[in-house]
Amino acid sequence: MGKQKFAVTVDDLTVAYNYKPVLWDIDLAIPEGVLMAIVGPNGAGKSTLIKAILGIIDPIAGSVSIYGKPYKKQRKLVGYVPQKGSVDWDFPTTALDVVMMGTYGSLGWIKRPGKKEKKTALESLEKVGMLSFKDRQISQLSGGQQQRVFLARALAQDADIYFMDEPFQGVDATTEIAIINILKELRKKGKTVVVVHHDLQTVPEYFDWVTFLNVKKIATGPVKEIFNDDNLTKTYGINYKVSVQK
């Protein structure tokens, strides 16, 4: 393997809620251009890891760099898809409006979104197959459609690195395939995508890189090399056997 460029580097990251460590001394280097799954049991700190990397949660120790520079200076390179349940979908706004929020970061303070931002938002909606729902009130979208709107919002950020918190949660098979195709498309363009993932069965099929997490980092590397019963058992604590289908 040649010299690899790392999109994200995490050093000694530790997060604790009231003295109880949620993440313990995480070192992580994510190579550019991979589609990576973060797997681990409930409470392993998967979402927390993403949130700490993105500065939503303050870690008690550690640092994060994006392409070698501190995250705070590189925000524009990073897109985020939060868990669908983290917002109130009864908020008075439309699908297009939500996607438009993806352009707010590059606009900065005060400046209003204009024609260019609207065009970006419409294109993003089209990429996720939601263009015909652009004027729909967001509470009237199905769970899968809401997830696609969130994905479109991140696409509108036009980032190089994407962090996604359980984008497959509560979506049906059709949406799941649509989403994974978009993620693979992103990887093809050289983007780096990091996904909190729950369904171990689909890891080999969807991802090429994987991180096992359970408060500590158990292992990280190419799916082909490290996605095995040994690491699964270490992470989940039970004798886990996963039938890897090709």
């Binding site: 939503i56 707010y104 970061g105």
Partner: peptide, 9 residues
Amino acid sequence: FDADYAKTL
């Protein structure tokens, strides 16, 4: 709508 997301932006 989404304070966490606003923070990441």
